[in-house]
Design a protein around this nucleic acid. Structure first.
Length: 507
RNA sequence: GCCGCGUUGGUCAAGGGGUUAAGACGCCUCCCUUUCACGGAGGAAUCACGGGUUCGAAUCCCGUACGUGGUACCA
């Protein structure tokens, strides 16, 4: 890449950076950086206004750690372009704002929220329901363009709150090339004079990205498609600052949409439809409510990363299951889609199922243990590993191991007695009684077990098929699970006999 | 309203002038399994619409429709 190190940056917002779309942006940044032996920079957006949610920074790092996409430069790791926290870069942004002000590309605006509101209602028409602060209206507002320099200075000295706005030209066409979409052009006549510096002294995203990307020598900037409309503002800023030649290449990633209905996927959808939209549990410090994450729902991080990668990108091959390292090798911007993708939770679970099959039983045992603990089931590690080997293929999410495996640890609490009673006969009671007695002297291995069962059935003049299902229900509680003799083998001679005996008494 | 971006089965998608238009998820049928899954074999289902260009269009162009994003001192 032009002998220049590829540097990509991720600048998650405290609110938006937390969900699926945000993590995917981070992932694509990471994949592109690694693929090109570049650097993945994380700049933290910590705007100190009411919308800022404390704990978001920690949360983001934990998410990225979980996914295995740790940044090379960040607040945590340090790096040559520190600080990486926006609030610590305040004076830097001011310097750049001054430059724009001095050269007439920006101006001071003293309008109060009420005045802005008045303007919006006053100029509101059917054709223009949302009037903007732009070339059409700025001449009618209270700003350094309409005020004399003396008046402006006086207001500033008097401590009247002000913002700095970019002065967007009236007739100009801004063009740029997006790595995903190709040529894109905007007519500046429809762009408004965006605020660059807020009254509280903090920069808006518009100023911050441009300044940070320049100073941090970012070569490629990827973000969600929702940023496309503000791209012309950023382009103009690069130009006005005279740093155009250092501008990164842009790529606007397609949106992740609601599975049904319309619109961007949001936190609410997860709650409504019963699936996670956050990587990990997220507790909103303000409302105190917790939103369940993919991690806590029982997703493997590699599965989460895999399914995220396939949402808006494809390898072009038939293979769909990839490790992070494979994704790094295969990733290319050319294969990123333009259109938004609807999130499909069923497919997400399928990805997890696939990765569970590929995961080692020992690791699964560790991951699954907390879910057993939650249900107060004590698990011996060695035993649990054997159980996992037996049941993993029928598990899509980690909690499934509890449902599929609990009878290995405890006798079924509510066995499906009806299923047994339906075709029960006294002869069958005798049969099971006899089999329990056989068990005592039996060599405890699969074939011997099954042979004794089959032989006894023949002797008792009972069809083996008629007692197989009852046996299963006695041991398992229901019509599910691995081979019934494998189960008996696992739970042991005593337990097998005891479970049969107990059910027999209930019939 | 205006501006931008997009549109291949229900969903994710390959394919970028000539294909029987891949594959995956989901759904259905059958096989396997004396259970449930897994697995295997099949099946239903698609190029948004209308015009061009072309010998030939899912593919290129133009419209329309629809979707989606933006239109904040949010990101």
């Amino acid at each position: 890449m032009n002998n220049k190190t590829v540097r990509v940056r991720f600048a998650p917002s405290p609110t938006g950076g937390l969900h699926l779309g945000g993590v995917r942006t981070a992932l694509f940044n990471y994949l592109f950086a690694r693929h090109n032996n570049g650097v993945f920079v994380l700049r933290v957006e910590d705007t100190d206004q009411s919308r800022f949610v404390s704990g978001a920074e920690e949360y983001i790092f934990e998410c990225l750690d979980w996914c295995g996409i740790t940044p090379d430069e960040s607040v945590r790791t340090g790096g040559p372009h520190a600080p990486y926290r926006q609030s610590e870069r305040k004076t830097i942004y001011h310097d750049y704002a001054e430059r724009l002000l001095a050269e007439g590309y920006a101006y001071y605006a003293f309008d109060t929220p009420e005045e802005l509101e008045r303007m919006r209602t006053e100029f509101k028409t059917e054709q223009n329901p949302v009037p903007q602060y732009d070339h059409k209206t700025r001449g009618l507002m209270r700003n350094s363009l309409t005020l004399s320099p003396e008046q402006t200075n006086q207001l500033i000295q008097d401590g009247v709150p002000y913002v700095v706005r970019i002065k967007i030209p009236e007739y100009e066409t801004v063009r740029f090339t997006d790595m995903i979409r190709g040529e894109i052009s905007y007519d500046t006549g429809v762009v408004d004079d965006k605020v660059l510096l807020k009254a509280d002294g903090m920069p808006t995203y518009h100023l911050a990205v441009v300044v940070d990307d320049y100073l941090m020598q970012i070569t490629h900037a990827f973000r969600g498609e929702e940023w496309l409309p503000s791209a012309p503002v950023h382009l103009l800023l690069w130009k006005y600052l005279g740093i155009e030649q250092h501008m990164p290449q842009w790529a606007h990633l397609p949106l992740i949409l609601k599975p049904n209905g319309n619109g961007k996927l949001s936190k609410r959808d997860g709650e409504r439809l019963g699936f996670p939209v956050f990587a990990m549990d997220w507790k909103d410090p303000k409302s105190g409510e917790t939103t369940t994450g993919f991690r806590e729902s029982g997703f493997l991080p590699e599965a989460f990363v895999n399914l995220l990668a396939m949402l808006g990108w494809s390898s072009g091959m038939e293979q769909e299951i990839f490790t992070l390292e494979e994704l790094v090798q295969l990733f290319s911007m050319e294969r990123v889609h333009k259109g938004g993708a609807k999130f499909d939770y069923e497919k997400a679970k399928w990805f997890n199922h696939q990765h569970i099959q590929r995961a080692g039983n020992e690791r699964l045992a560790e991951l699954v243990q907390p879910f057993f603990q939650k249900e107060n089931i004590k698990t011996d590690k060695e035993y649990l590993i054997k159980v996992i080997a037996l049941i993993k293929e029928r598990c899509h999410l980690l909690p499934d191991f509890v449902e599929q495996g609990r009878f290995f640890f405890q006798a079924p609490a509510q066995p499906d007695l009806e299923a047994i009673r339906a075709k029960w006969t006294p002869e069958k009671t005798d049969f099971f009684q006899a089999w329990i007695d056989c068990l005592v002297n039996l060599n405890w291995e699969h074939d011997a077990l099954e042979a004794s069962f089959s032989e006894l059935a023949v002797e008792s003049n009972i069809k083996k098929g008629e007692v197989m299902l009852p046996l299963r229900i006695m041991l398992v509680g229901g019509k599910f699970g691995p081979g019934v003799f494998d189960i008996a083998l696992m739970i042991g001679k005593e337990e097998t006999a005891s479970r049969i005996r107990n059910i027999l008494e209930l019939l």
